[in-house]
Design a protein around this nucleic acid. Structure first.
Lengths: 242, 242
DNA sequence: ACCTGAACACCGTTCAAGT
DNA sequence: ACCTGAACACCGTTCAAGT
């Protein structure tokens, strides 16, 4: 609920406490964002076009451009609004657990945004995501004893890992949904020659089961573990052997 | 060069050793893919549309659909061709170094594909990427003593991390290229309140420098380190404490 | 079998004009 | 200031017809 970020300002958001009481000029940035969210929820993010959105609001497509610079800005607005209204759980106090929870939070927040792939096509993940999640991860990392540089590097690694996982999973699900011909993977797997791809062919029939498992948490844990190893090395004595 | 995968088959690739000598019916899947690659190289992947491609080949857009099922297949074809022709360096023999090199290879191969984001919108990274890279990572992981399950989990974590990094970096660069208004990040950063976002505001001016650094290898190393830690725990005695 | 032409159902955005 | 209408320059793809 707190008004946390600007983002808006196509020209001027204005909204001067309402005109009087009559018609508050109908259109407003929040109203647009809300309508956009409605479309995404009911028809999927593939249906969210400026024209479709205008139709939803019963206005001309061009009217939108008075409250929003372009489609990119609309998508960012959408993600930020979502992130702002996301519940903010209290994180554990123990440093290591706090960091894990904060990193997991990034996943949870971003997972709410099926149009994430489109955002990525227009800006970085960190900008797109809500700043409070970033803040939580940095804070937790510093609390673990990482330096500023290390904390930022850690944040970025977590963001890349998380973003990659989500993008791949989301698009995979979307794709499988409306598919008539058998998934491309089956064909590709079936055509592998054992002599050039021994492990893949050996794995072929178990691959679907193996990749269906949710390994996000395990991978995240490994990633954080790896960063903690560098901490252990530099933290105690021993001035780095090699 | 070796013909490694099928992928093709819109209806039938045919190409019956050439008609005789006259005109080999002009259009062919390889020719289409090559033209597409030319467009991507010279005009960027944003320009690669079926219509633009048809213009490049001086044919009707619809003629393409005789050799390629749809735009999705064309993109996959493009990535596979690229991956197939990519040099295949000999990896080090030492297991750990071999795994690191194989994982790095995934990055190198995928980095060659600016249209990667579009592929992701249509299939998984592993399918899209060349199978030989996957094979190399699995082989290296097994050589390190991981089980099949662990090796697949490791591969997936590496793929997600790599995919996320590349997607974010690629789209960031593309975006910065044609940008008139100041990047969104500056605005967003400038508007942060110190009381709610103390570390981010403290970092604000150093952020560009910190995020410009290439931290891919460090993060990858950390991720692999983390997986090796689980190995150390289960490998020697001690039947898992908790 | 391979290709064309016309059409369908869309896009994001600019520009000039209305109130 | 806020919105409309018409237009520009595109998309991917289907369908019926030509050779």
């Amino acid at each position: 609920m707190r008004s946390d970020e600007p983002v808006g300002t196509a020209r001027k958001p204005v909204t001067p406490a309402r005109k009087k009481v009559g018609r508050p000029s109908r259109l407003s940035q929040p109203a647009i964002v809300e309508a956009a969210q409605r479309i995404v929820d009911t028809e999927g993010d593939g249906s969210l076009s400026m024209r479709r959105l205008a139709r939803e609001l019963s206005i001309t497509p061009m009217a939108l451009y008075h409250h929003v610079r372009d489609r990119d800005q609309l998508l960012r607005l959408l993600l930020e609004t979502k992130a702002r209204h996301q519940p903010r759980p209290t994180l554990p106090d123990a440093p290591r657990e706090r960091l894990t929870a904060a990193a997991q939070l990034l996943y949870d927040v971003l997972a709410e945004c099926p149009f994430l792939g489109e955002i990525l096509t227009s800006e970085e993940l960190m900008n797109a995501s809500s700043r409070w999640v970033t803040e939580a991860v940095l804070e937790a990392a510093l609390g673990c004893g990482f330096t500023l540089e290390e904390a930022v590097a850690l944040y970025r690694a977590v963001a890349h890992y998380t973003g990659g996982e989500l993008l791949i999973r989301l698009t995979r699900e979307r794709h499988l949904a409306h598919l008539d011909h058998p998934p491309y993977r089956s064909q590709a797997m079936a055509a592998l020659q054992p002599q050039t791809h021994p492990r893949l062919t050996a794995l072929a029939d178990r691959w679907p089961a193996l990749t269906a498992r949710d390994t996000h948490e395990a991978g995240l844990e490994a990633l954080l573990d790896g960063f903690f190893r560098t901490l252990d090395r530099s933290g105690p004595p021993s001035p780095a052997p090699s």
